[in-house]
Nucleic acid binder design. Structure first.
Lengths: 246, 246
DNA sequence: CGAGCGGTTGAGGCATGTCAAGAGTTGTGG
DNA sequence: CCACAACTCTTGACATGCCTCAACCGCTCG
């Protein structure tokens, strides 16, 4: 692990409050790894031996069942993921693959579990992190059950706009194909939906989103802080399943 | 609070490992309340001032958006709920209403937060509880995105059968209307789906489920431990969103 | 240059929601 | 005790959202 990377990790909410010595100890037992693009680094069902941290690149979390698969989240630096499985010493519920060349830190789950039993500051951080992640997934479930695909697309685009500083125009952070799967629809359906939203204040230009009439689009999406945030929460972290907080 | 209720609460994973004195302290600041049927005791968006525990009766957690609503979980004794919101000192993401006359214990969130900073055994329990809940919601999201309604119904019925001790016949723990909403479909659609499953090893008689051909039904549902459990986990607890662990 | 891939578009079909009506059940008040 | 209201559940008819399959375009990369 490179020395200049430590501060970046230390800066995460999860690690920010623990003692210096304990942080060093945790990092000493961890190691970094670089993965090429498209590598399935985690397979659902495998034992969760490590907590992962994305340092560079990006990672897709996805789930498989039968012949189907769907993407559950996309993570960008600096984020942790699969904290819950590491803690429960249980099998991964999701698989992970790199979307590009990606650098990952691996922290042994057993060290993690030992650490929060020893460092009470750290255990409080873990609690806050998990609670935050839990709420994110609940929001996700709400949007899936309460909104139709059109509304999910519109609210997603508005949320991303907000993350881009409220800009009326920005570039999609992920491929449309992947976004479709994240939003629980097919690529074809997303394509048609984006086209249809041209009557509602949206314009697409390739991967570029242009919000031409925010009020109109908002009326359709009905953004709700109990689904879309804010509290965009403490989501510098990952695995709370934001698709690309970046 | 009745003295005979304390052991039931103490028996929950969440409270079982903390010191006697601290448990007593937490209970001392809590109080019990009885609600009539159909009362909306928690409204989404309100501040989460209390951790709740169902002692008798049953509670539906549901979410609203726009004009629509859907049920997210049904909780039965003895279960805690809305732990994450209490911890984050954040607004409830879901509403709760009683399905029958229900007795609830209310633990002030601030006391809860103070307690896990003080009692490290308790903080470990909270971590395990939250991690477990998180995984439950992820499983829920997976079933929503990967299975169609028919498959969700079939797998739900098989899971319930397992909870009923593997019995081929049992009575639905909730009304069909509510079950439909939990499974992300309309009541009409559930009704038709149940009828259609008669070709696949299922027979309904009112609220009674009769599995006539388990192999056939399983082939359709393709139960998966990464979605349906087991690890039916430590789900004596609630808010991991099982519908009626009974 | 050709293969592969993401994206788009069209045609068609199935799954699911909506609306409406009726049977059965439960609960309530006269 | 009965009448009535309210509710769940079911069924039918219909509309529509969404998926599937197929073709095609444009781009990238070997």
């Amino acid at each position: 692990m490179r020395p200049e990377e430590l501060p970046e990790i230390r800066h995460l909410h999860l690690f920010r409050d623990m003692s210096h010595a304990n942080f060093e100890a945790l990092m000493a037992s961890s190691y970094a790894q670089n993965f090429p693009q498209g590598l399935e680094m985690i397979r659902q069902g495998d034992p969760a031996d490590f907590l992962h941290i994305v340092l560079e690149g990006s990672v897709e979390l996805f789930a498989r069942w039968g012949g189907r698969e769907c993407t559950m989240a996309v993570l960008r630096p600096v984020s942790t993921f699969i904290l819950a499985a590491s803690i429960r010493d249980a099998p991964y519920l999701m698989s992970a693959r790199t979307l590009e060349r990606t650098r990952i830190i691996l922290i042994p789950s057993s060290d993690l579990r030992a650490m929060f039993r020893r460092d009470s500051e750290f255990s409080v951080s873990v609690i806050n992190e998990l609670a935050s992640c839990y709420r994110s997934v609940v929001r996700n479930a709400k949007t899936l059950k309460l909104r139709n695909s059109r509304e999910r697309v519109a609210s997603y685009l508005l949320r991303q706009s907000l993350l881009a500083g409220g800009a009326p125009s920005y570039v999609l952070p992920v491929e449309k194909r992947l976004l479709a799967s994240y939003l629980g629809m097919t690529a074809e359906n997303l394509s048609r939906t984006l086209r249809a939203l041209e009557d509602d204040g949206l314009k697409m230009d390739g991967a570029r989103v242009i919000i031409t009439d925010r009020a109109k689009l908002s009326a359709l999406a009905q953004p709700d802080k109990l689904i879309d945030g804010p509290e965009m929460d403490s989501n510098e972290n990952g695995s709370g399943l934001p698709i690309s907080s970046r």
